[in-house]
């Protein structure tokens, strides 16, 4: 195999309504588990994935807040897009620990990776 690529996974949808965030999580740990530098970025409605206080038990679904809180254990890094939070009346304080990205910081991160893979 060639030297490892750097991959940015973009999660763009709200959790639970669509499986995208959960399936994106599986992709992130799959990549990180293979020693790929994996950056998980929550943008648009995807920022809801990081919101604290999720109670999906009544839906019979796994709590994505907990799953994404554990990303660093798998060697992946979590980021949240600040303008997407602001648009939704949220702030980093409402979220699980994640690096906050402005548009400039997100642009810079994109410029450092080989692939951007989207879960929308």
């Amino acid at each position: 195999m060639n030297e490892s690529k750097q991959v940015l996974i973009l999660i763009r949808t709200c959790p639970y309504g669509m499986a995208s965030a959960g399936e994106g999580f599986r992709a992130i740990i799959g990549l990180a588990g293979m020693e790929i530098d994996t950056h998980a970025v929550l943008v648009d409605d995807g920022v809801l994935v990081a919101l604290k206080g999720q109670l999906p038990d009544a839906l019979g679904m796994h709590k994505l807040e907990d799953a994404f809180s554990q990303l660093s254990d798998f060697g992946a890094k979590l980021y949240v897009h600040e303008p997407s939070l602001t648009e939704r009346g949220l702030s980093a304080d409402d979220c699980i620990p994640a690096e906050v990205l402005t548009d400039d910081k997100l642009r810079e991160l994109i410029s450092q990776v080989d692939h951007v893979i989207t879960f929308n």
Binding site: R12, V43, D103, R107, I110
Partner: peptide, 12 residues
């Protein structure tokens, strides 16, 4: 859908 908005704000 608003997916185009992210592209529009990031494109340089």
């Amino acid at each position: 859908r608003t997916a185009w908005k992210l592209a529009a704000r990031l494109a340089k």
